[in-house]
Design a protein around this nucleic acid. Structure first.
Lengths: 198, 198
DNA sequence: GTCTATACAAAGATAGAC
DNA sequence: GTCTATCTTTGTATAGAC
């Protein structure tokens, strides 16, 4: 068992949950230990006990976020009897979940907006998240092409980039405009294009 | 002549330029009057003379940003002899400009990442920016379809949403990963899809 | 593991001299 | 229009009692 999976106290988990939401809605720079202390009814010093510095907390939040996605991606790829489109449908589930809320975007996208204000350890992880997801999408697209399920008009890596950017951008636009149908529309257009010319 | 076009002092312009860059690279919450004072070799109080509050400065920055885009969009639409694809090529110019720098994203996308931490006046403008651009893109797509230049597999408003999100997302990913080819790839894929099935 | 108390720096902002 | 000086609040962080 690695360090990443060592269990955490109940309070630590609550702190992580709240910090994740705060970063997604207000950004890393704009949230404070005080915000969390108020919400949980504890003192700032107690949070420092669990996460000595704000950077430590930020790293823990994104590491957990990444781990959740990694687990989901592995699960999807585990069942090779599925169609590639079904795999993509599973992939976009988290985006649809965020889409259902008025104020949530992908944690990594929120962080990417303030990239140069982030501690280096956090920056690295945002970069890792983006690279990993685009690579994963590329693999699914290649699989779909190989199996004759997709008819792409551009190389899989480029289509993967377009898809990933469109999903992340759609969440940002959704929140800013308050129009929750943004992601549904974007996903619909993407899927139609993968299916190939009618 | 409207208020928006009233001329500003040289110092005020320098402050706006720097604030714009700082918001694009570090975000609204993370930049301070001190950052600007240091860079310009002036005092914080001097900035407060030109822009009483941080919200005032933020509003001035995004208003100028929006005005620049509005002007560009109007210019593009002014010459109706152009092809719709040419109009789109002009539209993506600013994105390509940002794409050439390692750390710039669209001002509105940076702000969208920390939406709930923004003063209401700024939030409104981000929303306005997103709505305006998607509406403009929709009009160009409709024009292209009407003139037989584009063969879309989905309704123009939805394709416009996908395109816009993809462009914004591409800039964020570009900065996070450091791969400047992200936008070129995304634009290439988008254009190929507009041209219709081969 | 949580608290009180406190240190220390930075932020946004204002008053008033020049 | 810019400066010095100052105020107030907030943010991150630590020491040490319970």
């Amino acid at each position: 068992m690695t360090t990443a999976t060592r269990q955490r106290s109940e309070t630590a988990e609550q702190i992580l949950d709240l910090a994740e939401t705060l970063i997604q809605t207000r950004g890393y720079s704009a949230f404070s230990y005080q915000d969390i202390a108020d919400a949980l009814g504890i003192r700032k010093a107690s949070i420092h006990y669990h996460f000595p510095s704000k950077a430590d907390l930020g790293v823990a939040v994104i590491d957990r976020y990444i781990a959740r996605f990694d687990s989901a991606l592995n699960q999807i790829a585990a069942d090779q009897t599925q169609s590639s489109m079904t795999m993509l449908d599973f992939y976009v589930q988290p985006y649809l979940l965020f889409a259902g809320t008025p104020d949530r975007v992908c944690l990594s996208a929120a962080l990417a907006g303030e990239m140069l204000a982030l501690p280096p350890q956090i920056r690295e992880r945002v970069e890792h998240f983006f690279r990993t997801h685009q690579a994963w999408l590329t693999k699914i697209l290649q699989r779909g092409v190989a199996r004759g399920e997709f008819a792409l008009q551009a190389p899989p890596p480029k289509v993967a980039r377009m898809m990933f950017g469109a999903l992340q951008g759609a969440l940002l636009v959704k929140r800013a405009t308050g129009d929750l149908s943004q992601i549904d529309d974007v996903i619909a257009v993407i899927k139609q294009q993968l299916a190939g010319p009618a």
